[in-house]
């Protein structure tokens, strides 16, 4: 027996589009974050200095409008941190470490800003 059960290996497809329009799509395990899915697959536009603690604002993404209503509401900490991103926040800005991948997000597109640091 282990202390924690392993995360399910089911995945959702997430597409990361850079500011130049370059697009990469990966199957990201459910329960992990959009940030983790990007970093593990080598999406260089997501920096994630703090590793997902919502304290560095270097995993900023713009979420495709169609998927915005499917996301959980922001915690106050994320909202504050978005005031600290290098590229100014927009209405569809989120920190990708705070977006947990669920089945309903399958097919989601996020756009990465020109720079994070």
């Amino acid at each position: 027996m282990s202390l924690f059960s392993r995360k399910p290996k089911e995945t959702a497809s997430i597409t990361y589009v850079s500011h130049t329009g370059a697009s990469q799509t990966f199957d990201v395990p459910l329960g992990t974050s959009v940030m983790e899915g990007g970093v593990r697959n080598g999406v260089e536009e997501i920096v994630a200095e703090c590793g997902g603690a919502c304290i560095c604002a270097t995993c900023h993404v713009f979420v495709d409008e169609a998927y915005l209503p499917l996301l959980d509401a922001m915690e106050p900490g994320e909202n504050e941190m978005l005031g600290n991103t290098l590229v100014k926040r927009r209405p569809n800005s989120r920190l990708s470490c705070q977006i947990q991948v669920t089945k309903s997000l399958d097919g989601m597109v996020v756009h990465t800003p020109e720079a994070q640091v």
Binding site: V39, R40, N41, G42, G51
Partner: peptide, 18 residues
Amino acid sequence: GKQELDEIDLRPAAFYEK
């Protein structure tokens, strides 16, 4: 139990090659 020990690499192997 929120993160696995084998899932905390800073970057994947391919990053260093690239």
